[in-house]
Computed example of a mutant assay.
Amino acid sequence: MTPLRAGLLGVGMMGRHHARVLHELDDVELVGIADAAGDPHGVAGTEGVLPDVDALIDAGIDIAVVAVPTRFHEDAALALAEAGVHTLVEKPIAHTIEAGRRMTDAFRVAGLVGAVGHIERFNPALQELRRRLEAGELGTAYQVQTRRQGPFPSRIADVGVAKDLASHDIDLTAWVTQSDYAEVAAQTGFRSGREHEDMIAITGRLESGVIVNHLVNWLSPMKERVTIVTGEKGAFVADTSTGDLTFFANGTVPLEWESMTVFRGVSEGDVTRFAFAKREPLRVELEAFRDAVLGRPNDVVTMAQGLRTLEVVELALASAARPHARANAG
């Protein structure tokens, strides 16, 4: 078959990895790269870098990946939709809900694949976790906790930690549990002198009744990417930095230590760390996008799904901006 002609808009910290994978992807030929800032990582080779999305469209592309700052997503995506180009934009889908809706509508009306790069869905640990939850290995799920923290990334200037990082956790939680958010609230902090929040604590409940908590910041000297799903039979712990998944089973051995028998609840059981194939999440994500364009079975994250994630993020930020009741010491 004739390869899909691909274009890439943006070759910054994330775009350079898209360029590498697109060069290697079967049934895809990367024919153009555009970035107004040039090619800081030298990924374009001898062909050079085009100046903008219009020049990329003029190269005659079938599909495109948009990896520019969030505030530029809408203009680029709408131009690509008008040109009939299937497009994947990096997360979050857009800087505002209104922009995300315009993008979603444009691709739907044009009959094009519009996708969002929520890459954590393609992390091997989370894919294995979802498969095991579907198989009933946890029983009823009770709670999902995520921790996503690390040093400040200088590449991010136009959004806060909620849209940049918490969007990962909101999307993966709804996807892993296969349940949408029913309610959400949050607290934010501004500690680094920027206009956007650099820390957020989110709590909420899914439509299934599962309680969720997300702790996210750019203020930690250590990097942590952890998802914990606690349920009827124990707890799964997914480390998405390493792609590892571990199951902590509820214990079935009677306690013989007399002082511990007064406690009620579960006890510690077997701990199992699973072995499974670990493919690069970005490669799996771009394969899904390619397969969606080619009409093959796929797990692409649609723009409608990306928009819903942004809506939940905005609800959390709105909650944090409202006055809250103070707890007074007695």
Rank of each mutant, 00 (worst) to 15 (best):
L4A: 05
G12N: 08
R16P: 03
R20S: 06
H23K: 15
E24C: 09
L25V: 07
A37T: 15
G38S: 07
T46S: 14
T46I: 10
T46K: 14
E47Y: 00
D52W: 06
A67M: 02
R71T: 11
F72H: 11
A76M: 03
L78F: 07
L80F: 06
A94D: 04
R101D: 10
M103H: 08
D105N: 14
A106D: 07
G111V: 09
L112N: 08
V116Y: 00
G117M: 06
R130W: 04
R130D: 05
E134S: 12
L138N: 00
G139T: 04
G139C: 08
T146A: 13
R147S: 12
P151W: 08
G160Q: 04
D164H: 11
H168I: 06
I170M: 05
I170L: 10
I170F: 02
D171R: 04
T177M: 15
Q178I: 07
V184Q: 02
A186Q: 03
R191C: 10
E195T: 12
H196G: 07
H196S: 11
G204R: 01
E207C: 10
V210Y: 03
N213Y: 13
W218F: 10
L219H: 04
V226F: 09
I228C: 14
G231L: 09
K233I: 07
G234L: 05
T240L: 04
T240S: 11
S241W: 10
V253C: 06
E256C: 11
E258F: 12
G269H: 03
F274R: 15
R279D: 15
V284E: 09
L286D: 00
E287F: 08
E287I: 13
D291C: 03
V293R: 00
P297S: 10
R308E: 05
E311S: 09
E314N: 11
A318E: 15
A318L: 14
A320S: 12
A325K: 15
R326V: 13
A329P: 08
G330F: 15
